[in-house]
């Protein structure tokens, strides 16, 4: 078996989370808990891509801050929208 590197593990995790999100959306009625779970998985996916694929973890801290802030603000909106 070929050696799986960090990027491969992250890709598998991102795909697994996508399938999990879809399962949540398809199987459960939209509740605050489902929205919160989905919002946190979106934050995680965003952070993984920003830090590891985009490689901002070891790069400019201001750009990393802006990108991560984006992936906090809009998932937070997902949580807020659950209480409309």
């Amino acid at each position: 078996m070929k050696y799986l590197g960090k990027l491969e593990y992250y890709l598998l995790a991102l795909i697994a989370i996508t399938l999990f999100n879809t399962f949540l959306g398809e199987q459960f009625a939209s509740t605050a808990l489902v929205n919160v779970l989905i919002a946190f998985t979106v934050i995680y996916k965003g952070f993984v891509v920003i830090d590891n694929f985009m490689e901002l973890k070891a790069a400019n801290k201001n750009l990393r801050f802006l990108m991560r802030l984006y992936f906090i603000i809009f998932p937070l909106m997902i949580i807020i929208s659950a209480f409309y």
């Binding site: 996508t18 999100n21 879809t22 949540l24 959306g25 009625a29 939209s30 929205n35 989905i38 979106v42 996916k45 965003g46 891509v49 920003i50 694929f53 985009m54 990108m67 992936f71 809009f74 998932p75 997902i78 929208s81």
Partner: peptide
């Protein structure tokens, strides 16, 4: 980095349009 940005946007679009009810 531009390509990753496009991927990031889809990461947000997907749950908003396909998953959340």
């Amino acid at each position: 980095v531009y390509w990753h940005m496009i991927d990031l946007m889809w990461i947000l679009i997907f749950p908003l349009l396909y998953v959340l009810r």
